[in-house]
Amino acid sequence: MEIIISILAGILIATGVYNLLQKQLLRIVIGTGLLSHGAHLFILTMGKLKRGQPPVLEDNITNYTDPLPQALILTSIVISFGVTSLILVLAYRTANENKTDNMEQLRGNENE
């Protein structure tokens, strides 16, 4: 199961990097979202997927699920939501003020 989720996380990260290298601002925002989701899956996979195990230690339990990766992912989801919101607002304002969302035109490289 970890191999499948690792492959899925790798695909998400590869797709995110591909979108980060595009010319349109909206694709860059989508790329940051995909990249963060791939990182969330990698963190979850590194915590070892155990189904049906309790996440908290009790007296008679020897086999348990580590709750730390879940807490890290929850914190990371909140942070990535804030970053995505900020990037969306900046992209919207940039597109409105400059009348374009093309990164080459925003950089001033129109002839290349």
Rank of each mutant, 00 (worst) to 15 (best):
G52F: 07
V89D: 06
L41N: 05
L68C: 05
T32K: 00
S6I: 13
P54A: 11
F42W: 10
S6V: 10
V29Q: 01
R93I: 08
S6P: 01
Q53P: 01
M46I: 13
I79F: 10
L68I: 15
S85R: 04
L57T: 12
L88G: 03
P69T: 09
T15V: 11
S6C: 12
F42D: 02
L86Y: 10
L68W: 15
N60T: 14
Q24H: 15
L72R: 03
D66Q: 06
I77S: 07
L57N: 14
L34C: 04
G33I: 03
L49E: 03
F42I: 12
Q22G: 04
L35V: 03
L21N: 08
I3E: 11
A95F: 08
K50C: 09
T94W: 03
L12Y: 02
D66T: 05
V78I: 15
H37Q: 14
V78Q: 07
V78A: 14
I73M: 09
S6N: 13
P54I: 10
L25M: 09
G82L: 15
P67R: 08
L86K: 07
V83G: 02
A39Y: 02
I77D: 03
G16C: 05
A95G: 04
I7F: 09
L44R: 05
A95D: 05
V83K: 00
G31F: 00
T62K: 12
L34I: 02
L41K: 06
N60A: 12
R51Q: 13
S85E: 05
A95M: 09
K48F: 14
G33H: 00
T32V: 12
M46Y: 15
A14Q: 05
P69G: 07
Q70W: 14
L21S: 12
L21P: 01
P55I: 13
I13E: 02
L35D: 01
R27K: 15
L86Q: 07
T15A: 11
T62Q: 13
Y18A: 10
A71D: 10
L12F: 09
Y92L: 15
I28H: 03
L34K: 00
A95N: 07
Q24I: 04
V29F: 00
P54R: 06
Q22F: 03
T65Q: 14
S76L: 12
V89K: 09
L34Q: 02
N19W: 01
L26T: 08
G47M: 06
Q24Y: 10
L72Q: 05
I4T: 09
I43H: 04
Y64H: 12
S85M: 14
D66Y: 07
K50D: 13
T45S: 15
T62M: 11
T15D: 01
I30T: 08
I87N: 02
G33W: 00
G82N: 07
P67Q: 08
T45G: 05
I4Y: 06
H37D: 10
A9K: 06
A91H: 03
Q24N: 15
L44C: 07
L12S: 06
G10T: 11
F81N: 06
S80I: 04
R93T: 09
G33M: 04
Q70R: 09
L90M: 15
L44M: 14
Q70G: 12
L41E: 06
A91W: 02
T84K: 04
L26P: 02
L57A: 14
